[in-house]
Design a protein around this nucleic acid. Structure first.
Lengths: 235, 235
DNA sequence: CAGTATCCTTCCAGATACTG
DNA sequence: CAGTATCTGGAAGGATACTG
């Protein structure tokens, strides 16, 4: 019932400043992150964003809707949830770039950084940030199961897509828990180390394992395990 | 003298959330933006960031230094200013991606969006965000003078660098004011329109003009002006 | 479930005074 | 000049009770 209270802006003639006027407030980019994974209901957002407070979430959604970044999935029902507009989809690259930076920071400091809120679905974003299609060498797909959340990377003709759900005919199946996943992703654990200790289980050829590690930018010079990794644990 | 006040964090096991824990607070990314253009003194930062307040700037710099993103240029003298560390340089991509998003938003809404704070140096960042080396067709350089701020793009063997200062032997010299610059950059004005009205002055071949427009992603379908633009106004 | 309304706390802008 | 320190009103954010 106030609405008029002139929102705080940087008021600078600059692309970055304007972007931050729109998505720079606290929580906003995390809301976007959730919606980049698909439509979400109000309740789901609240659960994915512990600490946000119902009023803030409502505020942010209303503002983002007005800015044309987000819209209700179904304007008629209140319960249909929210999704990104075409404009909002444009935030994918900036968000992934930010995520890459964050992962690099984590990798650098080697601090285990045990955060208290962990969600398997964030693993998808991490994978999407890590994948560089330029490193893809074979048209095949890799399936991940992280704490019962299933998604996959499909490499096709030099481009890589990351999607929720199982892959059709994966060259590799990877299974692990979120904690191990982020430890590997941020360089706290070597992929091969995780394999050998059983924290990560894979089924697929050793060659596919290697290609996947390369695709994700996790290859280290001393990885030369060749046949060390047999196809194991089909479930 | 407080220091202990446990900084607000999202505390989520997620690259994006961690990145935002570090650079997500108000003003922080704008400080980074300034430092991406080169080292800056405390005073210069204050001037580039109207409204920030001396304490906030000091807080932010101290925190960023502790996080290993920024460092004093000269640890001995207090007056040397600040620069990005190697870690901090990693923010270039996320910042440019954000700037691209912001510019796209501006372009979409066609609102002239006259911000009250305008600085020529920000034009460099905008250019850097707009350039896509994949669109480069010739090894040459383009020089810009925006409100007496001079910088250039140098295309060399499929890569493009954006740098402060004049170009060695530019194929094109562009001269304009900041306002026009951003109007063109955000699509409010067509490049050719700006040329014809004299708001933008160029010296160089029509072909170079066209290649530069393409490089910056400003080409529109109906641009087919061929010889319409003679080399003009050498100064 | 999807939000409002409310209350309280924390953060921020702006001013100013102080130090080496 | 290059900061640091302190203070104050106001805006943003967090927690929770409440409503259609």
């Amino acid at each position: 019932m106030k609405a008029s209270h002139a929102r705080r802006t940087y008021d600078q003639q600059c692309g970055l400043a304007y972007a931050l006027d729109v998505v720079g407030e606290r929580w906003t980019l995390l809301i976007i992150r959730e919606l980049l994974l698909g439509p979400r209901r109000y309740r789901e957002l609240l659960e994915a964003l512990p600490g946000i407070g119902t009023n803030l979430l409502a505020d942010r959604l209303a503002f983002l809707a007005e800015a044309g970044i987000v819209r209700p999935v179904d304007a008629r029902r209140r319960t249909g949830g929210y999704e990104l507009t075409t404009q909002g989809e444009r935030l994918r690259e900036p968000v992934l770039a930010m995520a890459r930076f964050g992962l690099a920071m984590l990798a650098e400091q080697r601090g285990p950084r045990r955060a208290s809120v962990v969600r398997a679905s964030w693993a998808i974003l991490a994978v999407e940030a890590m994948v560089d299609a330029a490193r893809a060498t074979a048209d095949e797909s890799y399936e991940f199961e992280v704490d019962s959340e299933v998604f996959h990377i499909a490499v096709d003709d030099g481009t890589a897509r990351t999607r929720l759900g199982p892959a059709a005919d994966p060259a590799l199946r990877v299974r692990t828990d979120v904690t191990t996943f982020f430890d590997v992703g941020s360089g706290v654990i070597e992929p091969m180390e995780a394999l050998l200790t059983g924290a990560v289980q894979v089924s697929g050829s050793a060659a596919a394992v290697r290609r996947c590690i390369v695709l994700l930018g996790l290859a280290s010079e001393r990885d030369d395990l060749g046949q060390l990794v047999p196809a194991q644990r089909e479930n």
